[in-house]
Simulated assay, not measured.
Amino acid sequence: MIEAEYKARLTKPDAVRAKLRDLAQSESESYRDVYFDTEDNNLGRAGQEFRLRTISGANGTRHLLTFKDSAVDTETGSKPEFETVVSEREPLEEMITRLGYAPVIELTKHCENFRFASAGHDLLATVVTVPEIDGTFLELETQATENDLQAVLADLRTVLADLGVSKGELTTELYTDAVAEARKQSM
């Protein structure tokens, strides 16, 4: 499956949050992400991501291992995604490093998640802040097949418009790149 997704750097985050609260209850969670790659950056050069995430919130803590393949839509950065729940983080992290992958960046995202249905899709809208990056972001995503990706993205654009998110706010900027740049600037 493809994670059909738009990301926006919000100019009016409170207004978007208010509209989302009319659609669904929010759930606040913290994501601790560690991205892995080979010594010679094979995954990064191919536009792929290999991530171990720990999600902490009111419903407890869970771990996810995710591989995202290269983008199939350059306008949005939507990628095929393969993800599984992991029961124990530490042993898996050890296995990953023993297989030749090393952590390349770690970051924390503070997320407010809203789950709702629209246009026949189960959607996840996440309002995101990252301590090292200025601004507030919105991620709007659902699952799609390669055959219906463009239609699903059109539905997501309609939802974004309904939330008051303009085309000018859309971005394909990666949090990993922005955090790496912020860390370089602070040195």
Rank of each mutant, 00 (worst) to 15 (best):
K7C: 06
K7L: 03
A8D: 01
L10R: 14
T11P: 00
T11C: 02
K12Y: 06
K12L: 06
D14Q: 12
D14T: 11
R17F: 03
A18F: 02
A18M: 05
A18L: 07
K19H: 07
L20V: 08
L20T: 08
R21Y: 01
D22K: 00
D22A: 07
L23D: 05
S26K: 04
E29A: 07
S30Y: 00
Y31A: 13
Y31Q: 15
V34K: 10
Y35A: 12
F36S: 09
F36P: 03
D37H: 05
D37T: 07
T38P: 13
E39P: 12
D40F: 04
N41W: 02
N42H: 00
N42W: 00
L43V: 04
L43R: 01
G44L: 11
A46Y: 03
G47S: 06
G47W: 06
Q48R: 14
E49Y: 08
F50G: 02
F50I: 02
R51V: 01
L52Y: 08
R53I: 03
R53Y: 01
T54F: 10
T54P: 10
T54Q: 15
I55F: 08
S56V: 12
S56C: 08
S56L: 06
S56D: 10
G60I: 06
G60F: 05
G60C: 05
G60L: 06
R62A: 00
H63I: 14
H63R: 02
H63G: 07
L64P: 01
L64E: 12
L65Q: 13
L65C: 13
T66Q: 09
T66P: 05
F67E: 02
F67A: 02
F67N: 02
K68A: 09
V72F: 06
D73Q: 07
D73G: 08
E75F: 02
E75I: 02
T76S: 14
T76W: 10
T76P: 14
G77K: 12
G77D: 06
S78I: 09
K79T: 11
P80W: 03
E81F: 04
F82S: 12
V85P: 10
S87N: 14
S87V: 13
E88G: 00
R89C: 12
R89F: 10
R89E: 15
E90H: 00
L92E: 08
E93V: 08
E94P: 07
E94V: 14
M95H: 08
M95Q: 10
M95I: 15
M95S: 11
I96V: 14
I96L: 13
I96R: 10
T97A: 09
R98C: 04
G100E: 05
Y101T: 10
A102G: 15
P103L: 07
V104P: 05
V104E: 12
I105F: 09
I105Q: 10
I105N: 14
E106G: 15
E106P: 01
E106S: 14
L107M: 14
H110D: 00
H110S: 00
C111L: 14
R115K: 03
A117S: 13
A119L: 12
H121K: 06
L124W: 03
V127P: 07
V127T: 06
V128K: 09
V128T: 15
T129K: 09
T129Y: 04
V130D: 04
P131R: 03
P131H: 05
E132N: 13
I133H: 15
I133M: 15
I133C: 15
D134T: 13
G135T: 13
T136K: 04
T136G: 05
F137K: 09
L138V: 09
L138S: 09
E139G: 14
E139N: 13
E139Y: 13
E139P: 12
T142F: 02
